[in-house]
Every structure is written in C-alpha cells, then in structure tokens.
Nucleic acid binder design. Structure first.
Length: 414
RNA sequence: GGACAGUUGGGUGAGUUGGCUGAAACCACACCCCUGCUAAGGGUGCGUGCUCGAAAGGGUACCGAGAGUUCGAAUCUCUCACUGUCCGCCA
C-alpha cells in the first residue's frame, strides 16, 4: 500500500509517479477525498466519544453516590444519537478507502525508465557470449522428445493443460538444480527455509497478490487457502505483523517451493513446452532490510542470480524494467534473461524487485528505530526459476545428435 | 470427523457479581543507583494503530475476529476463526 499521508501532502508529485504505472489521476483524487473524509469523520467522532466516555464515568459516580441520573442520561442519549451518522460515515469511508487503496500499485523509483511495456525495458549488460552452433539448434520441446525428458501429454492427463512430467535424467537435473541454487544462496547469507505451499488470504494481501489478482491464484475453496504463486508470499510474511529489532536486519531468506499460477491472462502464450506452466519449481530469495540497506541488498541479489547463471555457463542479460512493465508491488525490478538458442531470443529466468515499504505497510512489518517503529523494506527475487533453467540448459548444452551435456558445476549434484 | 477446554501486552499469567483495569504480578528488556564483583539489592521506564501538539503531554481505538445488549464490556449474548487435549483416521 502506498503512503496515504504522502499522497495527501504531495499529491501532484505522487500522481506523476504513478502515471508511470498507468494509474489515473482521477483514481488518486478519489482516494485522497476518501482519506480526507475519513479523517474528518474520525476527528468529529472522537470528540463525541470523549464526551460520551467522560459522561459515562460520571454516570457511575452518580450511581455510587446515589444521585439522580435522569438528566445525565438524557444528555448521554442525545450525544449518542449524534454519533450514529458520523459512525456510519466513517465506516463507509474506511471500507471504500481500503478497497481503492489496496488496488493502487507501488510508486516506481525515480530512476525507473519511462515506457509502456516490455519493449521499452532497458538492457544494462550482457554476460557470457552465446555459443556458435555449427548446426541448427533445436527448441527444448524437440530436445525433450528426443531424450524422453518431458512427458507433456501425460502431464495433461494427470491434471490439465500446462502441466507436465519430467522423467529420468531431467527429473534428476531438476533436483540437482534446486540443491545447487539453495547452496549458492546460502553462501551469500540467505538462510534456507522450508515453508507451507498454501497461504491464507491475509498473507496474500500482505504481499500484494490480493485482493486485485485473485483470478491468477488457485484457491482451495473449502479451506479458504490458496496455493502459493511464489515463495515470496510465505517468506516475506514470516514477519507479518511483527516488530523487528534493527540489529536483526537485514534478514536474508531463501526457499525452494513449487509455484502455482492460473496464468489467466496468458491464454495462447507459450502454449508449447514448459516455459509457462501452472505449476513450476523455483528457488526464491527474500530480504527484509533497513530502508538504508535495501539498495545495496538489491544489487547483491542481482549479482547473486547472475553469478549462478554464469556458473552454469548460461549467457544472459540484465534488464531494467520500465514503468509500464513493473509489477504491482515493485518500486524497481531487474530481470535476468537467459539466452535460448533454440528460440533465438532472451527469455526471463529471474526477476528481482525492491518493493521498498509497499509490502511492509500492507503486511505491517516494522523495526525499532530508536523509540520509533518504522517500516522495513522488502525485496524478492528468483535464484532461479528451475523449469526455465532446465530449458536453458537443454538449448544451450545440446549436441548435434540431440543429446544434452550436463554443466560442470552440476555434476557433483547428480 | 466426534467430544471437551481455551484464545489477555515480548513471555508466563491475574482479572468472568459489567464502571475505579489498556489492563495486577512475575520474567525478559533498557537506563540509573549501590556494590572492588564475573553475585545480590534498589529505583525508573517499557504494547500497537490513528489523531491533536514544537515538545511535554492529551484524545480515541484495540484483551482471537465480527455483530449485539448497556449511559458504560476484556468481563453479558450471538456468529465465525484459530489453538489445545482425548477418541477416530492416517504419511
């Protein structure tokens, strides 16, 4: 959630920032009006409540002293009547405010480039030269078929479309990658966690998936739980509604989890292969930091993910997302795109975001700064998406006969 | 799934004839005093949000959540959620 006090005191500035993310000024005006209405109603209401409380205290005193209370009772009753409409007004404003405020995305950092969508993202650097092939490199699904690595049909049979089964060496490669990623993250100080793969609604609101993106989530109706779309949800919310000590920061966490996404808006995109599945494995990094630390930690997370790709010998590029491509909660995001020779393009394999205090405000994650409680910064990023790494290894390490080499660093894991 | 019990501040835990309890006491924590000691003792402070205020401080809300009764509710009523124990089932 954005800082509503800041919105009120710097409306034009705030509105301008959110234009980068496509938020209309009108929506913000509405939000501001609701905020002011709520404040005024609350103030008026609290004055009346104060009177009510002091009269009630008097009431008790009169009773004890055996005094007559009929006049006081009349006064109290009148006061009570006066509170009713204000109470209603405050309640409505509060509800309306919540509804609008929870749907407003985070402010992008000032450094975020302008742009409407993906095409306007800014490439920062490339790491590793893509290999020259003396033959036409195949796409991963063709290689999967040749090697018997992925059974798409039976995945569909077991569940539905966009599910698949890994077999034999591919399954072992997946397991090896998960371990390799977790170990690599551990060397950078990320503490491994094993977390629930389901989450309740309050946590999902904390990290920003709810209420706006419910259609992207798999829900267990009878239980009122959701399958997590990313480990960012459980990891960040580990400290939901907590006040941390400043010394505890930064908290660095990593976890392997499957991720479940409905891909509601992606019908027709990447239908072939396992680039876009309803269930995929991912190792995630999450950091909870002091506001002064978050930029440095962000850089470290980008480096870490990039280093892992380098260790695997996978060419990739580092891309700064423009305002229009930025996610709901992110103030800033850097994507790592891995080179896929079969597809002849770079594809996202990691996304690292600094949400600043946006999630912290929603999830009430604070720390003691002297006597004051302040919001932490939260960051998250993949290191890495497992399925897409398998795809990248298949395409980059393929031989002319269709066989696939295993990257050197993974050999001890298999 | 069945039966019973419970849900209070960082922790333990009082408070259930409605007001003087936002909440005793103890522990933990912070600061201070005393003390030639890797101890003990004493003092003070110590929940969160919103709000008014330069600050000191004040107002308001919160004792699992929501609604209700009442001049007034942690304390009474209702609904829901969660936790524990026993039984059943089970990796």
């Amino acid at each position: 959630m954005i800082d509503l006090k800041y919105l009120q005191s710097h409306f034009d500035e705030a509105s301008q920032k959110l234009q980068k993310k496509g938020v209309e000024t009108q929506t913000l005006k509405k939000l501001q009006t609701l905020f002011v209405t709520l404040k005024q109603a609350n103030q008026a209401l609290e004055t009346l409540k104060a009177e009510q409380n002091s009269m009630s205290r008097l009431f008790g005193q009169y009773k004890r002293e055996g005094k007559d209370v009929t006049k006081l009772k009349a006064k109290v009753d009148t006061n009570k009547e006066a509170m009713v409409p204000l109470q209603e007004q405050a309640r409505e404003a509060e509800a309306a405010l919540q509804e609008v405020a929870l749907g407003i995305p985070n402010f992008p950092d000032d450094s975020v480039p302008e742009g409407a969508g993906e095409e306007e993202n800014v490439e920062i650097r490339r790491v590793l030269e893509p290999r020259e092939f003396e033959f036409e490199p195949l796409e991963h699904w063709a290689l999967a078929e040749k090697n018997g690595w992925i059974d798409f049909e039976r995945g569909v049979k077991l569940a539905k479309s966009r599910f698949s089964v890994l077999r034999g060496e591919a399954a072992r490669l997946e397991r090896a990658l998960i371990n390799f990623f977790l170990d690599s993250n551990a060397t950078k100080g990320f503490i491994e966690q094993s977390v629930p793969f389901m989450s309740n609604a309050a946590m999902l609101q904390g990290t920003g998936q709810l209420p706006k993106f419910e259609e992207d989530l798999f829900k267990i109706e009878e239980e009122n739980l959701y399958l997590i779309p990313t480990a960012e949800v459980p990891l960040t919310n580990l400290y939901h509604d907590e006040i941390l000590t400043a010394e505890a920061l930064p908290l660095l966490m990593t976890a392997y989890t499957p991720c479940f996404r409905k891909e509601a808006g992606s019908a027709g995109r990447d239908t072939r292969g396992m680039i876009r599945q309803h269930q995929f494995n991912k190792v995630e990094m999450v950091a909870i930091t002091h506001p002064d630390q978050s930029d440095a930690v962000f850089e470290m997370m980008v480096e870490n993910a990039s280093d892992i790709l380098t260790a695997l010998g996978l060419p990739h590029r580092v891309v700064e997302l423009c305002g229009g491509d930025l996610g709901f909660s992110a103030a800033r995001t850097i994507d790592l795109e891995v080179w896929l020779p079969g597809q002849n393009k770079y594809r996202e394999i990691s996304s690292i975001s600094n949400t600043r205090d946006f999630q912290a405000r929603r999830a009430k994650i604070r720390f003691k700064d002297g006597k004051k409680n302040r919001l932490v910064h939260t960051l998250n990023g993949s290191a890495l998406a497992v399925g897409r790494t398998i795809v990248a290894i298949m395409e980059n390490y393929q031989n002319e006969d269709g066989s696939i080499e295993i990257p050197e660093v993974l050999k001890r894991y298999m």
